[in-house]
Design a protein around this nucleic acid. Structure first.
Lengths: 330, 330
DNA sequence: CTGAAAGCGCTTACAG
DNA sequence: CTGAAAGCGCTTACAG
């Protein structure tokens, strides 16, 4: 039996006779052979490592995504180096240039601040896949849920629950092309509700503090109270709920709240939070497939592709019902 | 200039004349040289990879810890492979045996279910460091905060706020040697408070659901209401707060609550959660140092060591004051 | 189809 | 101190 045959079996190539294959695998098993990846990667000219770039791993949405990606990457023999940017545009620019302590075979970047111009100026040629709601035309491979459709679904849900004055927390100031804002507007329009500019609340960061601040300011202003809140992330929604509470408003009775991301706390908080749940597993899988496409340009053009994955509206107490009994239950 | 000299500079060894050193570094800079770690590791007989084993990366406490560890490991030229066990004892046993798709140089395991016996049966010789509150005698390198002192601090804080009937949520059933339970008992005793066995509430998992369940059962029972709750994790505390809410009790006015871990949600939730914050950076650093000690047994015995790192009590609204104003503020 | 051999980019023991 | 050379464990092009 040749070395080539053994290699074929181990790497799953070619057609090896069943009996031979079994003998090889049996030998591998008894010896406890485990390929030395350093050697393999050195010989193949690859590092076997892909980088996942996120703002902050501690944020549950990104941690969940990282978990999915690690699992699926391992199954493909890849190893995931996680790198944090802290929402800094310069750090994101550095990341897409592949400035890592390790050589890497590919990059998956959750873009928060990155602009189209940053991509155009990119000099590195490492295969790249972008994640997230920002859009970059056809400059780069990109996976995301359909953020407009998801936002529309969220706001339609509020409208169905009877909300008529729905605030959007996290309307980006400038961006007419913010997909979530567009979904919000579409839902209002489809229901024949008038847009209230006072209820579109821009924030400086997708943080709980910011969500709380702008909702508090709204409630303390002369603007009539909202009866529904659509927040661009669950984290922002938690802040919004906090402001509502502190103002003596009950969720969902006085104002219903919908978030975005379905982080674990959405379930644990009181009242639990209705939210948009992206299909994280699909996100991870598509991103890895896009990386593979770029690494093996078998079959011609590896034109940048934009692809969407499914999402789901998860309905919980913040839009249905909840409340401590007035008298104690027994 | 010899290859050895260059190697010395790059790896920071030995005494190289300043001028030479600068010339080398300048050359490295202009050429943009980056060592190929696959080759280096192959030559050195190491993989350059350490594994971090946690129950679930999506849990914010572990995600935060992983973030710290990744950062500090990168600074030491290590790469972190994250592996999830899902709180499964068999998965933890497999992990300490080093059954990974990669060869690894060391293992850092957050032990949740692992028993002393599992360690005694271990056959692998990969350097190992254990994290977490379980104790394993002197069988293995181990880093943790002083959980007894931390729990005592938390409960003393409740007592200072005037609590007299303090429930402990998460008292492990069997374990007389549970360090957090011991801290709870010590604090009660020091304050001359009588132990109320009815207020020690065992749970099956450190989940919000379990925290909610046992507190709900307590509140619905004939036992007099508690005026303070010490939960073994923030996550459990969130569940406990939920049960209190649903029962019409206000936090902290009717019952104050203290958690453990200082996950990000502890700040975001309403009311925000008083909790014990372990020094994660120190945890990561000590764990890595212990791994290095085992890898470079320079200076003799690498006897297993148990080491503690600092913690802090972070006081927030759940033990001080909070409440929506009765009439709206203006 | 088979096997011996070169080469991936480093580190390090060794002869000069 | 210096430099040439071997070797880490794989993959793969190449001659048989």
């Amino acid at each position: 039996m040749s070395m080539k045959t053994v290699s074929n079996v181990i790497n799953g190539y070619a057609h090896v006779a069943e009996g031979t294959k079994e003998r090889v695998l049996a030998a591998v098993e008894t010896v406890g052979y485990r390929p030395n990846l350093s050697a393999r990667n050195l010989a193949r000219g690859r590092s076997g490592v892909i980088a996942l770039v996120v703002p902050r791993l501690e944020m549950p949405y990104f941690a969940g995504l990282a978990g999915q990606l690690i699992e699926q990457a391992e199954a493909r023999g890849w190893f995931v180096l996680i790198h944090e940017t802290g929402w800094d545009r310069m750090a994101e620019r550095a990341a897409i240039e592949g400035q890592f302590p390790q050589r890497i075979d590919g990059l998956i970047v959750s873009a928060q601040q990155l602009e189209r111009a940053d991509l155009d100026q990119r000099t590195a040629t490492t295969p790249l896949v972008l994640l997230g709601e920002r859009s970059f035309g056809d400059a780069v491979h990109h996976v995301a849920i359909d953020n407009t459709a998801a936002a529309r679904t969220a706001v339609e849900h509020l409208i169905e629950r009877g909300c008529r004055r729905i605030a959007m927390v996290g309307a980006s100031d400038a961006a007419a092309d913010d997909p979530r804002r567009r979904g919000y507007l579409e839902a209002l329009e489809a229901a024949g509700l008038e847009l209230q500019p006072d209820l579109m609340l821009p924030i400086r960061a997708n943080s709980g503090e910011e969500g709380e601040r702008v909702v508090r300011e709204l409630l303390e202003s002369d603007v009539a109270l909202p009866d529904g809140v659509f927040a661009v992330t669950d984290w922002v929604a938690l802040g919004a709920m906090r402001a509502l509470h502190l103002h003596g408003l009950r969720v969902p009775d006085d104002a219903a709240v919908v978030g975005f991301d379905d982080i674990p706390y959405a379930r644990a908080v009181t009242p639990s939070l209705t939210t948009i749940a992206p299909d994280r597993a699909a996100l991870a899988e598509v991103a890895l497939r896009m990386l593979e496409t770029q690494l093996n340009p078998a079959g011609g053009l590896a034109e940048p592709v934009h692809q969407t994955v499914p999402f789901e509206l998860v309905v919980r107490e913040s839009t249905t019902s909840f409340g401590p009994p007035q008298s104690r239950a027994h």
